[in-house]
Nucleic acid binder design. Structure first.
Lengths: 341, 341
DNA sequence: AAGCGCGATGTTAGCGCTTTCAACATTATA
DNA sequence: TATAATGTTGAAAGCGCTAACATCGCGCTT
């Protein structure tokens, strides 16, 4: 008892006067053990302070209850919601989350995929559809359910859950034009190693071109994920192109930073300049004027990704390989009001 | 090669014409293998697409490269920063994060501690100093480094990294009074199963009492972590106690929600009402008027927690068991300006 | 009363790796 | 040249658990 290596199943078995396999049964198939025996074993587990060793169990059974997940960064509240969706669903089913942050680096992603796969997870969730070829083959060869999230525009490895960044931005530009915008600037996240951001600008460019508006590089900027960057890029844009009447931001943080900058500079929103964001963070609705944005279902992405993996593991073959959670244009006060329709 | 179970170390060994142990050496102690042999093995790893099986490795060596971490919720951007600090430091050292979210439930925390311990992590990080007795004994019996975070006011199990929530709130109240406040309300997060929140109100109460100000329950409210709750509790407080001249919020989200509410209601800040928050989120500095708040080092908490565990694992005995990262009062525009001092 | 089925428990083998110890070849030392 | 030291590789054992099969005893059928 006082030996300082933790109790093993064998120790519990000895205390309960049974064999190890019976202890294993009490833990995994309690109904296959007689009531009296089960009680005795449970008591022995308690007195020995036994905590099952899943690494041994996983090796023997050749399966873990771990799901790997890779996000660019956790600090970006956007992915935090997805992670919460993941842990909520996974936790309820007795699975656990092995988390990695790539820092928007594809090379780091590959490295982390390798490290996670070494733990032989039951499934893995990654962000986006863009990966190094090495990462893709690693994922394919792993022989486990793989879910790519946050983007449905592309060739999935296995399963996908998310929405069309392209369509969402396209739709927002159309709405902006319907509300009177004629010269629309765009400020988005860096597109390097970020297919979601790339699809977003692409959607903007396509819509602008389709609607016969000016589609110039002088209208497009990139900014890091911060309020300060939103303010800075707005200043840059206004300096080059004072004729813009609307700016569409690739995420709400940039948009809100720009909105605050407008307030500081006395630019009236939306009278002088319309502003639209993307993500619909809580702040978007709480700020004054409230931000027009695109609502996406961040928490549900995580939740659904977990569900798809779990169903696949259960042998459920009816699960679709692609779940498009869609998006909604939320018009609030930073864009001109349209007639009720 | 086409057999669909993944390649084992033995398979690699065969391809390279060596024994399994040599493959193991190439992976873990490359310098203990002759150059030519190493090259041959590396090539064999490549051609077989071998990904080491760490669950087998962990069982054999009786050690994992996994660190467990428990936070109340990831969505709260506050903990997201800590998680990023953790993954950054851990990732750099070849360790991985097994993450759980307790949802502010102590029972759930105990359940998750058990599940995480079953994976035999090399160390574990938990939030706060308050746990169920069962959780505490589990943690003590595990025989691994344990770090409790976000609070240093209490009895640690092993190591601690954070700051004094009590002192921080005490200091802010003192500052508020120095700036002219005479009737200070307090709105904080629910204190149930949240020792950090409990210490914060306690700090407020102690300071108010010490300074001879009114310390009435009618001045104290609890609100969930949302802008809407901040606005709502402010309305409640003002309805009961229209005489308050300052409100101190237990976190920035509540404070900012209240600030927006003031803007909507035409309450001038800080002329009519001073507002102070806690956490110093990015938005606090970006909003107008910028929010007076308490800066704490959320990312560093994670970073430092990881470091402490890693150093302990390395056998470094010089690491202190307690790291107080402190706090800073950041005076901005939502409180009356003091004379330069 | 023999045989069958079934529930409850145990025995054996082995998951893929690392640890420990041994073996051998090569070089340095006396 | 003998011996020790060093470098390189391998063989055997076992980590703690579970899968698969084996065994036992009991009540039931016919």
């Amino acid at each position: 008892m006082d030996q300082h290596s933790p109790a093993r199943m064998e120790d519990v078995a000895q205390v309960a006067g049974v064999s190890a396999i019976t202890v294993s049964r009490v833990i995994h198939h309690p109904d296959k053990v007689a009531d009296a025996t089960r009680e005795r074993v449970l008591k022995a587990i308690e007195t020995t302070g036994y905590v099952p060793n899943r690494v041994a169990g996983s090796l023997a059974s050749n399966q873990t209850r771990i799901i790997g997940a890779l996000v660019p960064t956790v600090t970006n509240s956007i992915f935090a919601d997805t992670i919460d969706g993941l842990t909520d669903e996974l936790g309820a089913q007795g699975y656990q989350l092995l988390l990695g942050a790539t820092g928007y680096s594809l090379a780091e992603e590959t490295r982390l995929i390798n490290a996670i796969l070494a733990q032989r997870p039951a499934g893995i969730v990654v962000t986006g559809l863009q990966h190094e070829p090495a990462a893709e083959s690693l994922l394919r060869a792993a022989g486990i359910p793989v879910v790519e999230t946050w983007n449905v525009d592309g060739q999935p490895i296995d399963m996908t859950v998310g929405f069309s960044n392209f369509n969402a931005c396209h739709a927002m530009v159309e709405r902006l034009v319907a509300r009177g915008a004629r010269c629309i600037g765009y400020v988005g996240a860096p597109t390097l190693a970020n297919d979601r951001a790339a699809q977003r600008v692409a959607g903007y460019r396509a819509a602008v071109a389709k609607l016969g508006l000016e589609a110039s590089d002088s209208l497009v900027f990139e900014g890091k994920f911060s309020f300060a960057a939103g303010a800075g890029r707005l200043r840059d844009l206004l300096a080059t192109r004072p004729d813009v009447d609307a700016v569409f931001f690739g995420n709400d943080i940039l948009a809100l930073g720009a909105l605050f900058e407008c307030q500081r500079q006395g630019i009236r929103v939306p009278a002088d300049l319309a502003i639209a964001g993307f993500d619909d963070v809580e702040l978007a609705a709480s700020v004054a004027p409230a931000l027009t944005t695109v609502r996406i279902h961040r928490y549900e992405i995580g939740r659904q990704a977990a569900r798809m993996i779990l169903e696949r593991l259960r042998g459920d073959t009816t699960t679709p390989d692609l779940t498009d959670l869609g998006f909604e244009i939320i018009e609030r006060e930073t864009t001109p009001a349209g007639r009720a329709d």
